[in-house]
Amino acid sequence: MPGTDRCLKCSSCVRACPVVAEIGEMTFPGPRTVAVDAPRFGPSRVAIAEVAWLCSMCERCLEACPSRIGLPKAMLDMRASLFPNVRVRPGHERLLGNIDLYGLSIEPVRKVGGETMPKAKIAYFPGCIASQREVETMECSLGLLKAAGAEVEVPSGLVCCGSPLVKLGDERRCERLMDANLKILERYDQVVTSCPGCTVQLVEGYGLEALHITEFLTEVTGTKGMRFRPGSENIRLAVHHACHLSRGVGPHTKERTYELLSEVPGIELVSTGDETVCCGAGGSLLSGYPDVAGRMAARKVDSAIFCGAKIITAACPFCAMNLRRTGGIEVMELTQLISSRLRFPGQH
């Protein structure tokens, strides 16, 4: 148990939980009940399965807990122990079906990746979303990496990183995927990802040297190679810090995001006060409970609009996708936003 015995019943995690804030304790009792209270009930803890997949794994509770209990880990342990014996949500069933059929968490619409034998030392790992849904993110990321002077390629044959399966509690399927990816990725010195969920999984699950693109562009290549068009007008921009980036990969990525944005001319940052609040996409919430994920995203979009932002940016294609479902404001993934201001050779 990740220290759940240390709980003092202070309710900090419940108050911090964005899902509780959105749908109320009566519907989702919060991290404490699922991760700390329920396991104590012995065999009857299975009753918690009803709500155990309502958590978005944003790790805000981990930050809020004064006893520093590994609540997200405890939640995942709970899910993993329940998983073999419960009927999963329809959305999760589709996800598992896709994994079995295609090795991806979503239905593929295109083939990704060129070479089977590496020519470059750095692999770009697009992840399911950037390779199949938010394709622009992949293209812009590759463009930025190239502009920054990095030799990067997209290996073929990559499957889902397994992060959604870890979140679901399906350890068996996850291991199969990891084996497949590891065979390809271990030939490279470095992996760069767009999706922070993939970054965390590649580092923690696979033990690979993986960096998120915001880290790579600021810490490895730097942005000197990039040339920007002067901004014709200032865009009022709200930032959404993806949970798996700002809490998963590390708080230093918030600084990195701002460093990157400060390079781009014509941007006026708008402070919304809820930059680090979860948008609801993560932790299999979007696939299992799209309505809840939608409401959480709408709340963020509302707040950005109220603050006068015209665009929201997130350094995560998955968050970007979820925020975009709401409508009402333009959502651009970070690399997409930066690329839109990039001056390519021959451009004036």
């Binding site: 329920a38 009753a47 918690i48 709500v51």
Partner: peptide
């Protein structure tokens, strides 16, 4: 009620 409190109530 949620399933866990329901079960406890019954127990």
């Amino acid at each position: 009620l949620q399933a866990l409190p329901t079960l406890q109530l019954q127990r």
